[in-house]
Amino acid sequence: MTRVVSFVISVILTLQLAASFDLFPRFLSRPSHFLWPVMNYPMYSSAHYEGAVIARYRVFGRTADGSEVQVTADDLGLNFRKFQDLTIAALRDRDVRRAAAFAEIYRVRMGTRLVAMRLERDGYVLTRDGLQPAPPVRLSAVLLQAQ
């Protein structure tokens, strides 16, 4: 019995060791959460410096009649994280196929067809004198279909 349990212990700890130090991507070509709940813990690991922008993104859509609407996470039935990591990432990467898929979700949920989407960033700048407002910056626009 101790040999069986020893095998179990070895497997669990070896997998966690491999996940902790990102060995899965190197040896298995799979992300470190491939064997969830065994996973790596890379949160908050990027360094930031004075002048960094704490960004807040806004998504806007242009309708067929030329008017512009703000598209929120609620409109798409997404929470903040999914909106940030999927919708905004798709627009930032100018991924037309994914952006069109989110526009389709918007059409189904809100009843309005979007022909283009764009991403805007504002937020705050981190300075020695505290947070200062960052001016809005237009990051990208995606044309979803020929008008």
């Binding site: 966690q16 902790s20 790596n40 813990y41 890379p42 949160m43 690991s45």
Partner: peptide, 9 residues
Amino acid sequence: LIYLSATYH
């Protein structure tokens, strides 16, 4: 291992 993973990254 989890805390070491956080440190490592």
